[in-house]
């Protein structure tokens, strides 16, 4: 089943055209890693998937719903599309548990107790049950990011978007976060991950997408894209980062 369909997506910031013409299809349970030089538009591409950026042209379909249609209830669509940010963006005035339960409490009809139980289960999953009553300010970067993942999962999303989830972390914290993401991938979550972790992309990605200059230059299975890149720009980029 197709989860995300992108057709001729264009995005401009004022006179600057960041995404020029992007089309792709992401299937259920697929893990797509997006790589590319900084300023290539890969984060913007990701942020168009849940319309955090207004879309300038083209169409983005999430489970068949065209989110570029102004009549679409975008808040409803976003409940199915979890997002994890480079800077975590935890709510500093809420405890870890409240960070996770806030959105489900406000948006889901289910009972309060069930939501709290689910939050604890998610904290177990990311290995942070003992931090339930801590505040974000008391956590390390890696812990914050794992809470952020749990927070996104609490809405039972069908798709998870990751925007450079490990770029702001100390090196020794990166592994814990990648492990959680790897586990999610194994469980069959549909994931789009903008990342600089080439090793992770190669290991966990079903497909790697190389974006540069507002276009998808090349996309392929990791072994092919990393082992046998077709375009000069891909080769040039990989030679710098590998």
């Amino acid at each position: 089943m197709t989860m995300i369909r992108v057709e001729n997506l264009k995005k401009s910031f004022g006179p600057i055209e960041v995404l020029k013409d992007i089309s792709t299809v992401i299937e259920e349970k697929e893990v797509v890693c997006v790589i590319g030089p900084s300023g290539s538009g890969k984060s913007t591409f990701l942020r168009c998937m849940n319309r955090l950026e207004d879309i300038t042209g083209g169409h983005v379909y999430i489970e068949g719903t065209d989110i570029t249609d102004p009549k679409v209830d975008i808040n409803k669509v976003r409940q199915d599309v979890g997002m994890v940010f480079q800077q975590f963006n935890l709510f500093p005035h809420k405890s870890v548990l409240e960070n996770i339960t806030l959105a489900p409490m406000k948006l889901k009809k289910s009972d309060k107790k069930g939501i709290t139980e689910k939050a604890y289960a998610l904290l177990d999953k990311v290995g942070l049950r003992e931090k339930a009553n801590a505040y974000p300010g008391e956590l390390s970067g890696g812990q914050k990011q794992r809470v952020a993942i749990a927070r996104a999962l609490a809405m039972d999303p069908k798709i998870m978007l990751f925007d450079e989830p490990t770029s702001a972390l100390d090196p020794e914290m990166v592994g814990d976060v990648l492990d959680v993401m790897k586990q999610l991938a194994i469980e069959g979550m549909t994931m789009v991950i903008v990342t600089h972790e080439m090793g992770f992309a190669r290991e966990v990605g079903d497909r790697v997408m190389f974006i540069d200059g507002g276009f998808i230059v090349e996309e392929n299975i990791p072994a092919e894209l990393f082992g046998n890149p077709q375009h000069d720009r891909t080769k040039a980029f990989l030679s710098k980062v590998l």
């Binding site: 849940n50 955090l52 808040n75 409803k76 976003r78 409940q79 599309v81 979890g82 997002m83 940010f85 800077q87 963006n89 935890l90 709510f91 500093p92 005035h93 806030l102 959105a103 406000k106 948006l107 952020a148 927070r151 996104a152 809405m155």
Partner: peptide
């Protein structure tokens, strides 16, 4: 920080819920 609104909206909270539960409580402090 703008990221607070982005996080809240990405979870599906609407603009009013974002203001009420996320932005104003932090701003008032």
């Amino acid at each position: 920080d703008k990221g607070q609104t982005e996080a809240a909206r990405s979870l599906g909270l609407n603009a009013t819920q974002n203001m009420r539960y996320i932005i104003l409580p932090q701003a008032f402090r």
